[in-house]
Write a protein that binds this DNA or RNA. Structure first.
Lengths: 189, 189
DNA sequence: GTCTATAGGCAGATAGAC
DNA sequence: GTCTATCTGCCTATAGAC
């Protein structure tokens, strides 16, 4: 089937979010799809090609969700709350953010993989900074939007990784609470 | 030499902070110390034993630094700034926090390793929460100390991992700036 | 697109000599 | 404590048939 490529990326994404790229072998991946590892190499010649496909797919889906949030309008509180919803949705069942996981494995990634990773984090930061700047009047702080955005990016990635160790989502929840505290007004949307 | 055990943990620590536990092999580790891999197994029968020694050593050193900060007294700003100094000192040269790295590799760790990891993060959080609670009057927020502490733990771990992707310490610096903004008074110590 | 078969390498771990 | 030697297993990747 031609859609085995899709099955591969789908299963691989879930596996890498749990065990990392190193924790995924072409053999076990092939087994789960019901083909042989050599067939996986047909779709993705090298492991770095699979990783690249995962990052690009994941980034595109993420960006698309952020655009939906922007288009939905409303207060900054509403937007940031929905941003946290998106982050939370990837945290289920022993998984962390794909790119947070790969960032930990940075040393074993190809140059192309690394560049795509950089872009993912930069895009997230830029989106946050843009939204914050557009709603600065709602903020109870005069900190630079990009400073706040950097803290948020670090915060959610760290919360996913550390939270998983404790088997809880309390770190993400704390992130939400502190975030809300930075806002001058309550959510009225 | 009997102190080969020390050499092993020293080199292993540095390697794991860069490449992860999976990125370290008994063979290459042995090479760097100038012995054979079977001799490494003499000191650490299984890889999990080496990991355990690393976590415990790292945790003890970290705790000791936090105690020094507490004993030094001064304002909360001063203490948190020194806390950030400690975090920054592990960030040099493509390294992240040992426990942040291992947290990403959680799925491949032994039960004992996982428990030691949990304790590391819990201890850091408890220290932060304790200091915050003791200086609550200096805070410009009424958030729960443990909520703030969780955000800081997530924040610094995430900043190390994400910052490394960009080859910069800006994420850690942003953490510092936002932290300072939570404080009501300026540093007068 | 998928298969069989395999090359070639590296991993963790152990046995037994010294 | 360290060595040589080796077992066993897994990995990425490729060649060539179908």
């Amino acid at each position: 089937m031609a859609d085995n490529r899709q099955k591969l990326t789908k299963i691989a994404l879930s596996k890498v979010q749990k065990a990392g790229l190193r924790g995924l072998s072409f053999r076990t991946l092939a087994d789960e799809v019901g083909i042989k590892s050599s067939s996986v190499h047909y779709h993705f010649p090298e492991k770095a090609d699979l990783a690249q496909a995962l990052i690009e797919q994941y980034s595109a889906a993420f960006t698309s969700q952020l655009e939906t949030i922007s288009a939905g309008g409303g207060s900054l509180m509403r937007k940031l709350s929905r941003f946290m919803d998106v982050i939370e949705s990837v945290a289920s069942s022993d998984s962390v953010c794909l790119c947070g996981m790969l960032a930990a494995e940075l040393e074993s990634l190809s140059a192309e993989n690394r560049y795509a990773l950089k872009r993912f984090f930069a895009d997230m930061e830029d989106w946050l900074a843009r939204e914050i700047a557009a709603h600065q009047a709602e903020l109870s702080t005069s900190l630079e939007p990009h400073q706040l955005a950097k803290v948020m990016v670090s915060g959610v990635e760290g919360a996913l990784i550390v939270g998983r160790v404790h088997g809880s989502t309390e770190h993400l929840a704390a992130q939400r609470t502190v975030l809300a505290n930075l806002l001058r007004f309550e959510d009225r949307t």
